[in-house]
Design a protein around this nucleic acid. Sequence first.
DNA 1: TTGTACGCGTTATCAC
DNA 2: GTGATAACGCGTACAA
Lengths: 357, 357
Amino acid sequence: MASRRVTLADVARLAGVHPATASRALNQVDGSGLVSPATVARVTAAANRLGYRPNPVARSLRTRRSHTVGVVIPDLANPLFPPVIRGIEDRLAEGGYVALLANTDDDPAREHQLLERMRERHVDGLVLATVRRGTPEPAGPGEEDLPVVLVNRVAEDRALPAVAADDVSGIRLAVAHLVSLGHRRIGHVAGPQDLSTGAGRLRGFRLGMAEQGLEVGPADVVVAERYQVAEGLRCARQLLAQRPRVTAIVAANDMLALGCYRALAEAGLACPQDCSVVGFNDMPFVDQLSPPLTSVRFDHYAMGREAAQLILERLATPGCPTKVVYLPPELVVRASTGPAPRGGPGTEGRAGRRRAD
Amino acid sequence: MASRRVTLADVARLAGVHPATASRALNQVDGSGLVSPATVARVTAAANRLGYRPNPVARSLRTRRSHTVGVVIPDLANPLFPPVIRGIEDRLAEGGYVALLANTDDDPAREHQLLERMRERHVDGLVLATVRRGTPEPAGPGEEDLPVVLVNRVAEDRALPAVAADDVSGIRLAVAHLVSLGHRRIGHVAGPQDLSTGAGRLRGFRLGMAEQGLEVGPADVVVAERYQVAEGLRCARQLLAQRPRVTAIVAANDMLALGCYRALAEAGLACPQDCSVVGFNDMPFVDQLSPPLTSVRFDHYAMGREAAQLILERLATPGCPTKVVYLPPELVVRASTGPAPRGGPGTEGRAGRRRAD
DNA sequence: TTGTACGCGTTATCAC
DNA sequence: GTGATAACGCGTACAA
């Protein structure tokens, strides 16, 4: 029936101490003897008895810390992110923090507005999955700088703490796998080059091909503007047009790989009989596709946890060194990759067979 | 270079008025003349000049309203929800509100804890996609009650505002479609019966079958405990075991339909040649499955917007009547449904063919 | 119409 | 060690 929330003053009254003392007693880090153990006991007892919960708003007003971390995601609809968010939330909760989530839909204007809102709300730090190369300062100039951690992105100069998959290694795995299956004419549908993942994976492609003694000509790479199925379709169409004898495509992520599927179907090519496809991220559901997608996998949930860990460290120790964490990738081989066709694709013999609707 | 945030006092000083006056001038609803137009002009000018942004924390402490709405989702990894969340966020932003997002992973304990955190943070209202039948009071008894809106759920007695698809109509569409393809032995993998969607869709199934003059025996329905692929697999296995001659399965949602795919593959049955499958929700990516899934579709983004609309109405007019909004469903026919097999499935002639790995 | 004074709930900084 | 006091930034009765 007690309708009003119980406040610190109530606790103090019950414990027979001044509110300030109660505050100290409750916020006490164990050991530092600023307040007598007896009072601590009495106050905590009173707090428990009354079911006292501090008011975070009042606390935030006073301390200018909100125990809230802003998490900015480019696209919630990308299945990559839910596990990442879960990881962030879980680790943050362990540290007593809450995530304020926002997604920008890749719209810089929207992102700017969201970041402004987050500053207003006194978020203590930011976890960004949106940062583009060339805009390392996420919050505009002149502002007091919030702690920032990048996730699934890395700053060009590694000046910001970050957690991401080892893009280069991952793509090299993919290339090596394809070569082991006999592929030689391999194309790359690259990601946006203003994203660290897009640039890193393209670098990995060139490196991996070189390691295998294969050349990469200008026509072997088509760069997507965004990580979306439609872009994958566009790029794969172009790739097939300018390199009709390609037998395998490495896509910079799974969304683009989906676009490649469509382009192959359009062209009357079967996957993997005529052309193999490899993705990146191993998103949920790609094992249910037709054909199930071979993809470079890493632990998304762990990436989220690690990002939260970094921001917590940074909040606890503002000056701590800037860490960049790379997660080890592995290749999950499924049915979208197979032996290189012997006659070569694009020859009339194999085209025009069964196609997805 | 101005490092400190500009505060109301700064604005007042520049405008040459008392802070209280500045406050009134800025919070003024147009028309009601509590403050002279001249001062309003001066104050707003000063505010713009300084780039004043009110401190939401202080305001929230004072007014006990945070302009924040808690949004609780059972499972972020379900692709149904991202568009819903987008809809909620967008509409909320138009009304000057922010969404505080949380996902419970279907864990009531976790949900309880999250709701507590949200209360602490002074959320002004709640949008819940988690409510189960039998627990209409989401926040525990005796507490001051926050405005609540349900999304993708409906309270048993319709006592709470809610937005959801018209489950009954949707399933009837599915049944009618299957019957028109010649199916007569149709099974249902039902959703959890403590969720309004699970119960409503089961009701729709019985109704739809009755309309078509078909009987529903106890063995024709298997009830899933959760909306997950693994549960769909379990239920479909059971259904196939107890009704081997079934030629079509209506799944209560797309996740369960995915489980049905697996069960059919296990049993060596081809979809749709041996057995058709219909899902519900038309999640993103189900058009990319093998085979592309026939599913009952409704506008997820619109559902989110509508839910936000309802909570905004409720915040503006606390006593307003309780609305329950049903969204019209439509059937998206893809390749997972086809004509009923003539010989009937489960006969040895067709079993044991190609199977997914 | 505007200024005065106070309180929202907490914590930081002084004294004692 | 603990109590008193002020302040975080804003909104709002009340007085003028």
